[in-house]
Amino acid sequence: MHSTRSIVIFVLIMTTVVSLLLAFLSSAWAERSKDNALLYAKKATLGAVSQHLEMDYASINNEQVSDIFKNQVEQKVLRMDGTALTKEEVEELGYTGGQAENVDILKEMKKPEAERVLPLFIYKKKSGDKFYILSAAGKGLWDVIWGCVALESDLRTLAGVSFDHAAETPGLGAEIKDNKTWVKQFTGTKIYDEQGNYTSVYVRKGGAKDPDYEVDGISGATITANGVSEMLKRGLKYYEPYLKSI
């Protein structure tokens, strides 16, 4: 039977060793982990223009992602009225780095609508074509969903989308991320009709009726699909003041 003194000493030594070890590892790798998280988000953003990249998106590596972002992507952070914030103003909101890539869209969704800021990425292909990548977030079946929508330079047609989710069911709601065939449907759809009215893109259960403005639903994932429709309708409209100003 160990005495109380030896127990206390043992526990103290153990706590110190453990805390020091973990604190050391955590801070040694903190930069790396943050970079990884940023790269993961950047890769997802580029997923919206995956068909317009010079390399195959499925096998893209981290260096290529940061290269593209450094040389071919212009970043802006917009207010709801379409004006852009300066780097300092973005940092004041709590996003160190001051760029669109640092803005947490899920955090913005928790603020009242008028106060939100919107991240915008403008991707320029080597051939000169410009693509405007907008971000949106909404609610799926279980938890939040979010994604990027890339508009071609006519600011009307979609070049592609990429979605992600927090907790949708694999095989059902998670198909918005995993099913490449379903995601590809969005390419070529339009968010404004011929007269210039805002239509967004609608995910229709049972099959799209008008392929220009609708896409097919996902069997067994109606609620998630409705979440996508709602997220796009509301989230893309936020960018209207900016889009009209171009």
């Binding site: 099913n179 065939t181 379903w182 097919d216 996902i218 069997s219």
Partner: peptide, 13 residues
């Protein structure tokens, strides 16, 4: 296979 049964009207690639 490529038949993702959850998308109707798929193009199998």
């Amino acid at each position: 296979g490529a038949g993702d049964i959850y998308a109707i009207n798929t193009e199998t690639s």
